[in-house]
Amino acid sequence: MAVKTIWQIAHSCGHSAERDLSDRAADRRAGFAGWLAKQECTDCWRASKEDDEQEKAAWLKAKRAEEQAASEAWSQQYRMPPLEGTGRAVAWGVRCRHQVLAAAYTALVLEGETDETEWAEIEETARTLTRAGWWIDQRFSEPDDLTELLHAATTADRPTENPYF
């Protein structure tokens, strides 16, 4: 007698379904059927994943709103000028500028050798960079590199973005 290939699975969610286990070795079918019985059925599993995704999206939206509010408050407190770019880029750029400058202040002033007067000069240079894309591009930079990055961005002898056009 051959080992059966079609198994009736009573899932943990209460649903039942027939499953073709012919793609499994005969000696592994019973064990796999037992494991399947401890799982939700496919429909219930998909529904729970959709709920998880919706919860994750809602959490992320709330987190971004919180970060945005904190970044905008920080920008006002430290008299940072508005950024230029598309709506999404500006919002993202404001968050990136806040994160980059806050990390640099911690590394250079609080933990490093930079004094408040030198930091004020760095901050003043940072105010001149109003393109949101620049701040977005620097989001992964090292805090210790900020002065060099600011210098490179504000030097007058920079080549054009595309010298062929």
Rank of each mutant, 00 (worst) to 15 (best):
E18C: 05
L149D: 06
A107D: 10
F140A: 11
E148S: 11
H15V: 06
Q54I: 01
G31Y: 13
L108C: 05
P143H: 07
D115A: 08
A132F: 04
R95Y: 00
A30Q: 12
G14L: 12
Y78M: 06
S141T: 03
A73I: 01
G85V: 10
A17K: 10
H151R: 10
W35D: 06
N162C: 07
W74T: 00
M80S: 09
A73T: 06
L21F: 12
G133R: 11
A17P: 06
E124Q: 13
K4F: 03
L60M: 08
A120D: 14
D51W: 06
H98P: 00
T117A: 15
W134L: 08
V94Y: 01
V94W: 02
P82L: 09
I9A: 08
A73F: 02
D43S: 11
T42E: 14
Q77G: 10
V3N: 11
A69Y: 02
A91L: 12
R88N: 13
T125N: 09
A104G: 05
Q138D: 02
Q138M: 10
Q77D: 05
A73Q: 08
K63S: 07
W45Q: 12
D20K: 10
E121L: 13
A126E: 10
A17W: 15
E148M: 12
E53R: 15
S71C: 03
N162W: 06
C41K: 09
E124D: 11
W35F: 14
V90P: 03
Q54F: 01
A153V: 03
H15C: 13
V90W: 09
S22Y: 09
E84G: 01
D52G: 09
H98F: 06
L110Y: 05
A104I: 04
E161P: 00
A120W: 10
P163K: 03
A2E: 14
T117P: 01
D137L: 02
D115V: 05
L101S: 04
P159N: 01
E84T: 12
Q138T: 02
K49N: 11
